[in-house]
Design a protein around this nucleic acid. Structure first.
Lengths: 87, 87
DNA sequence: GTTCTTAATGCCATATATGACAAGTTGGTA
DNA sequence: TACCAACTTGTCATATATGGCATTAAGAAC
């Protein structure tokens, strides 16, 4: 069974992932890129499927993935991290 | 066989991971924490083994892991990302 | 109606992050 | 010498990020 702290940790994780996903989506749309555009601009291969999953907070991306996303969006990782945390 | 761009991508990844690992180590040592201390301060479970691997750039941590590390080090994720890029 | 773009979602395979533990190393201190 | 703390490294299992592809849905055009 899941303890209260495990549930709280999962909520913290979900809030983080949703915040970052929203941040990415916002930056992407400000640039006028589609998810396909963004994946195409990234270093190496990256599947549009995963862009969708990251933007909606369904996966927990690695720092290298976020680095490549930031690069494709022409912002620094620091700028990518300027999101408002959900409670 | 690995193409030139695959090799370049791997080098980019390694440089990123080493930069972030060094940044974490520096912040940790400034706080006077051992790796055991840091792992103990993190939300949820985290193994000291993995602290070592992250600090030396041998693994590609997820954003949630970095979030928990930042939290344990009492800095924001943005501050954690203030590292000097290699090369 | 159809067609096109965009995005979401489901499934499967592979690579790897992490958990967990044992063993080795290094530096200090006695 | 021995001991101890901090760290590294190896191995294995499990969870999951990502690659890849098919399908679905919604909206905008025509």
């Amino acid at each position: 069974m899941a303890s209260n702290s495990e549930i709280a940790l999962k909520k913290t994780r979900n809030n983080l992932l949703i915040s970052i996903g929203s941040r990415i989506q916002k930056l992407r749309e400000n640039k006028g890129f589609s998810q396909v555009d963004l994946a195409a601009r990234m270093l190496g291969k990256f599947d549009t499927t995963n862009i969708s999953r990251i933007e909606s907070g369904r996966t927990n991306p690695t720092i290298f993935t976020l680095y490549r996303i930031a690069n494709a969006l022409e912002v620094s990782i620091k700028e990518l991290m300027e999101f408002e945390a959900l409670e």
